Deep mutational scan, measured.
Amino acid sequence: TGIVNVSSSLNVRSSASTSSKVIGSLSGNTKVTIVGEEGAFYKIEYKGSHGYVAKEYI
């Protein structure tokens, strides 16, 4: 489990790349469930599926 550490919002992406499609966003202080790691990204549970967020903001 981690907490989103941004002042505005954090993009949730379809894969572990900054060039991948943005599938949603999370507000600061949102609790997320981390299910894996891939490079500079965490794989998280997101809306019944999975998404990826940059580690530096969790």
Rank of each mutant, 00 (worst) to 15 (best):
N5M: 12
N11F: 15
Y52F: 14
E56H: 09
E37R: 06
I34N: 00
S8P: 12
I44E: 00
N5E: 07
N29L: 10
S14N: 10
I58W: 04
S17I: 06
A16D: 03
V4S: 05
T18R: 11
S15A: 12
L26G: 00
S49N: 08
I3C: 09
S27A: 14
A16E: 03
H50K: 05
G2P: 05
G2M: 08
E38T: 08
V6S: 13
V12C: 02
F41T: 02
S27F: 09
T18S: 11
K21D: 14
V53W: 01
N5F: 06
T30M: 11
N29F: 12
A54W: 11
V6H: 13
I44L: 03
S49I: 10
K31N: 09
V53E: 00
V32W: 03
Y46R: 00
L26P: 00
I23L: 10
K43P: 00
S14I: 15
I58Y: 03
V12S: 00
I34V: 06
G36Q: 06
I58E: 02
V35A: 05
G39P: 03
Y46D: 01
V35M: 10
G24K: 02
S19N: 12
I3H: 10
Y52A: 01
S25W: 13
S9E: 13
S19G: 13
Y57T: 06
I34P: 01
E37K: 05
A54G: 09
S8E: 14
N5R: 07
S17D: 12
F41S: 03
N11A: 14
I58R: 01
N29G: 14
E56Y: 09
H50V: 12
G24E: 02
A54S: 10
G24C: 04
V12R: 00
G51M: 02
G28I: 11
V6G: 13
Y42A: 02
G36K: 07
V12Q: 00
Y42F: 12
E37G: 05
F41M: 04
E38S: 10
S8W: 15
L10S: 05
E45V: 15
K47N: 11
E56L: 10
S8A: 12
E38F: 09
S15T: 10
E56N: 08
S14D: 14
A16F: 04
G28K: 14
S27R: 13
A54V: 10
G28S: 14
E45H: 08
A54F: 09
S25H: 13
T18E: 14
N11M: 14
G48A: 07
V53F: 01
K21F: 09
G24Q: 02
S27P: 15
T30G: 06
H50C: 08
I34L: 06
I44A: 00
L26S: 01
G36V: 03
T1M: 15
G2D: 04
K21T: 13
I34W: 05
R13G: 06
Y57H: 12
K21S: 12
T1A: 09
S49P: 01
S7N: 10
T1C: 11
G39F: 05
V32P: 02
I23N: 01
I58K: 02
Y46M: 04
S25N: 11
K47R: 13
S14E: 15
V53R: 01
G51E: 01
L26R: 01
G48Q: 09
S25I: 15
I34R: 01
H50P: 05
S20R: 02
I44N: 00
S14G: 10
S8I: 12
I3Y: 14
N29R: 07
S20G: 10
V22K: 07
Y57V: 05
L10M: 07
E45D: 08
A54E: 15
T30P: 03
F41G: 00
G24F: 08
S20A: 15
L10Y: 04
L10R: 03
A40T: 09
Y52H: 02
S8V: 11
L10N: 03
S49A: 13
E38W: 08
E56I: 13
S27M: 14
G51L: 01
N5K: 10
S9V: 13
A16V: 06
G51S: 02
S15V: 06
S25T: 14
V35S: 05
S15E: 15
S25A: 11
V32L: 05
Y46C: 04
V22L: 08
G36L: 05
T18A: 10
V22D: 04
I58G: 02
V35Y: 07
S20H: 05
G2L: 07
V35P: 00
I3F: 15
Y57S: 09
G2H: 08
E45S: 08
Y57D: 09
K31D: 06
S19Y: 10
S25F: 15
I3E: 06
V6R: 05
S14M: 13
V4G: 05
K55R: 08
N5H: 09
A16I: 05
L10F: 05
S7T: 13
S9D: 11
L10E: 03
A16S: 07
K43F: 05
S14V: 15
S7F: 08
Y52E: 00
F41L: 02
S9K: 13
S9M: 12
T30N: 06
R13H: 15
F41C: 04
V22N: 05
V6Y: 06
T30K: 06
K55I: 05
S17P: 01
K31Y: 13
K43N: 03
S8N: 13
Y42T: 01
G28Q: 12
K21L: 12
T33S: 09
L26V: 10
V32H: 04
T1G: 08
S27N: 13
E45P: 05
H50F: 15
S25E: 12
E37S: 11
G48S: 08
E37D: 08
S7G: 13
H50R: 05
Y46F: 14
K47A: 10
V22F: 07
A16G: 06
S7K: 11
G48Y: 06
G36N: 06
K47T: 04
K21W: 09
K55V: 05
S20K: 02
N29W: 13
I23R: 03
Y52W: 12
T33E: 07
I23F: 03
T33Q: 10
K43T: 04
N29E: 08
T1Q: 13
K31W: 13
S27E: 14
V35W: 07
I44Q: 00
V35E: 04
